[in-house]
Computed example of a mutant assay.
Amino acid sequence: MNQSRSYGESRRRRPVNNKVPAGWLDYTPLHTWIENTRLVPFKCPLRWSILRNLNQRDRFSLNDLIERLDYRKRELGLIIDLTDTHRYYDYRDVEDLDIEYCKIRVPGHQDVSDENCQNFFRIVNKFLRNNRQNDKLIGIHCTHGVNRSGYFIARYLIEILGLQPDEAIAAFNRARGHKIEKNIEDLQTRKKIHVTFSSSSSSSSSSSSSSDREVDEYYTAKDRPLPYTRPSIDPTSDEISPTKSQITT
């Protein structure tokens, strides 16, 4: 999952943009993972050169992310980055933390391609298949960790795990602490599918089908889902402060 050398070379040639992403400060960093899964959405952590001019309480870096999960005795095994830029943090810092990193470039304010969703499904399923003996989390973020992240996660919950659209959207909203605002009508049309990823041979296709069954079995086994207590109050409602988070330090 390494990036190409040309990426690093091109970064050195570009001027550095140290602006905080638009709207980033309006969202809490993270709340908790999606119930009965290992998927945890959060807003994009930022590198120090962007954070240094912010108040301490407003900062959210890779180290802050790790510390907040450590507090809950949870460990990240993979970060899926859905932003359409490389400027927010260096993927090598993720790998230095012994966390896998995968980039799916998804432009904001545009329709999401089925190809990107299939790629997302494949990455998540592969990680779960290779990490059946541990409970490492899969972190997913876009810039704010809401609309693009919510869309990909909700489609996974619907199409792979078989949740009804309303259940999937509500599960994401509870876990993120912010509501998905876009592509709701599209998500309402989705339903469970039998995933068959494109491959060059019938044996690969057979292996893929077997993998999908393994993922289904992982999530239906009663002793595998992570411990999770659903909030007594919906964190996306107006009854509590938007800054309240279930994952705190």
Score class of each variant (00 low, 15 high):
Asn2Arg: 15
Asn2Cys: 10
Arg11Cys: 14
Arg11Asn: 12
Arg12Ala: 10
Arg12Leu: 14
Val20Thr: 13
Pro21His: 09
Trp24Cys: 08
Trp24Arg: 00
Leu25Asp: 07
Asp26Thr: 04
Tyr27Asn: 13
Pro29Thr: 02
Pro29Ile: 04
Trp33Cys: 03
Trp33Ser: 00
Glu35Tyr: 07
Asn36Ser: 12
Arg38Thr: 05
Arg38Cys: 03
Val40Tyr: 02
Pro41Tyr: 01
Lys43Thr: 06
Cys44Ile: 04
Ile50Ala: 04
Gln56Ser: 13
Gln56Thr: 14
Ser61Asn: 01
Ile66Tyr: 09
Ile66Asp: 02
Glu67Tyr: 01
Gly77Glu: 02
Ile79His: 08
Ile80Asp: 02
Asp81Phe: 04
His86Phe: 13
His86Gly: 12
Tyr88Arg: 12
Tyr91His: 14
Val94Asn: 06
Ile99Arg: 13
Tyr101Arg: 14
Tyr101Gly: 04
Ile104Met: 07
Pro107Asp: 03
His109Ile: 02
Asp111Ile: 10
Val112Ile: 15
Ser113Gly: 04
Asp114Lys: 08
Asn116Lys: 14
Asn119Val: 09
Asn131His: 15
Asn131Val: 05
Arg132Ser: 13
Asp135Glu: 14
Thr143Cys: 07
Tyr151His: 15
Ile158Ser: 09
Ile158Val: 12
Glu159Gln: 13
Leu161Asn: 03
Gly162Gln: 00
Ala168Met: 08
Ile169Asp: 07
Ala170Trp: 09
Arg174Leu: 14
Ala175Met: 01
Gly177His: 07
His178Leu: 03
Leu187Lys: 07
Lys192Phe: 10
Ile193Ala: 11
His194Ser: 06
Ser198Ile: 08
Ser199Lys: 04
Ser200Leu: 15
Ser200Ile: 13
Ser201Cys: 10
Ser204Pro: 04
Ser204Val: 01
Ser205Pro: 00
Ser206Asp: 11
Ser211Arg: 14
Ser211Met: 15
Val215Tyr: 09
Thr220Met: 10
Pro227Cys: 01
Tyr228Phe: 10
Pro231Thr: 09
Ser232Lys: 13
Asp238Tyr: 11
Ile240Leu: 14
Ser241Asn: 08
Gln246Cys: 12
Thr248Gly: 06
Thr248Asp: 12
